[in-house]
Design a protein around this nucleic acid. Structure first.
Lengths: 234, 234
DNA sequence: CGAGCGCTTGACCGGCGTCAACACCCGTGG
DNA sequence: CCACGGGTGTTGACGCCGGTCAAGCGCTCG
């Protein structure tokens, strides 16, 4: 386990008004009056690959808006093994469950370099009762989280290994250049799809052999999609 | 629990006073003033086994508070097969996603005789912005739904067939008589755990043979748990 | 240049899917 | 009352997908 210094993640207090991804996130449609209700600092933070945002059962200081990168949510099962519940992307709220309980239900780990804003629980509680705009946004975020969880289950944990890996590649497609797709360590991918790392490797290799995808790096983390149809109909 | 007068909420259709799970549900801690804000009828509804509450993609009239019975949420995957996303029990809110989008993300089907209250979206929208009490309850329900989804994934779709079936039996344990547990058709159970119905049948039979559970009916739907430890450490 | 980590590949085998037969319950109609 | 048929659960035989174990390869970084 890599020791992470929490202090080092802090990049300063952020100015939400000038946030680059503001239209995606919780504060998208706040007005000046709403901003006036914020009486605690919103911290700008960054984590390296493998960085730990929080652990399962931790008491929450705030929730995190994910501005850049991807975060995996990890739960340890009763028999000790680790299970990746789902992966969050830019615009998602990390640790949203803390709004209801004050504690985190799973562990959150950065899958690549990650930037987040940490919004204190007090700010969220104030705003969500006093600003109907945030209230509505929040509802949307809950719904997205729930749908994300259900989709994850329905897409990645159903069918043959080939089908799962195919769905995974489609799900991890980049937003901008949609013919590229990111992968993670074979072990992580296995924990996401309930497959062994060797099986993941075999299926990925198979797809490359069959010209469905094409490796773009030597680390096995970045691929170009050559035959999207084959992935959909796997 | 404060005893509450809620004449205005009934409209002759729903009698919240007789609701056995009032302290579990959304309206648990509304006060007199809150109920005054309800300007649409809350309908009391019942469905038989197999009854359809709504279909995937339906426009929502309201959300459902589940008072009695169990409801399965079904999603059809891209390759046409059906997948049971999760099962809701008394106290859960069925179709909560409609609060954010106005539409249902999955199909809801009664697994046994079911009683629900249908609360119109307009009522929910009014109340949740004007009553901090409902707002907090709602947050709790979202969190429960999300945790339920994650738990479902982590418990029932991980490990060997034996482990899945064992976890399933524990999850479906009755609230009152905790040594009894309900099952559904082997096909439904398979769709929940991503197993074939024959495999489910084999594992259930195996557990009976090993004196871990004991059948209480001839339909294979009700069992007594004899060796709880064996289920936990499967 | 060597150590170490992650990815790949091969050989083998066991668990689960597939196909099929059969048992059992129950409703229907002769 | 029994015969019949459909629906559901069970059980068996067999094959294949994916897990297991192990070896080898290619990066990266000291």
């Amino acid at each position: 386990m890599i020791p992470i210094h929490i202090e080092s993640a802090w990049k300063g207090t952020s100015d939400c008004r000038s946030c680059g991804v503001r239209d995606l996130v919780l504060f998208a449609d706040l007005n000046e009056e709403d901003f006036g209700l914020i009486h605690a600092p919103i911290d700008d933070m960054a984590y390296p690959v493998g960085g730990l945002l929080y652990s399962e059962g931790d008491k929450a200081i705030g929730v995190y808006t994910l501005r850049q990168g991807m975060v995996k949510l990890v739960r340890s099962t009763s028999d000790g093994r680790e299970r990746i519940i789902r992966v969050l992307r830019a615009g998602d709220v990390v640790g949203i469950e803390a709004l209801a309980t004050g504690y985190f239900d799973s562990e959150a780990v950065a899958l690549n370099d990650v930037k987040v804003c940490r919004i204190p629980l007090s700010v969220m509680h104030n705003l969500s009762t006093q600003s109907p705009r945030l209230h509505n946004r929040l509802m949307q975020k809950w719904q997205q989280a729930l749908k994300g969880a259900d989709d994850w289950l329905a897409d990645l944990n159903f069918g043959t290994a080939r089908q799962r890996v195919s769905k995974f590649i489609l799900k991890m497609r980049h937003d901008e250049s949609s013919d590229e797709s990111s992968m993670f360590s074979r072990e992580d991918m296995g924990a996401m799809m309930d497959l062994k790392l060797e099986t993941v490797s075999r299926e990925v290799s198979g797809l490359v052999r069959e010209q469905v995808i094409q490796p773009l790096d030597k680390a096995g983390r970045l691929y170009r999609i050559q035959n999207e149809k084959a992935l959909h109909s796997a």
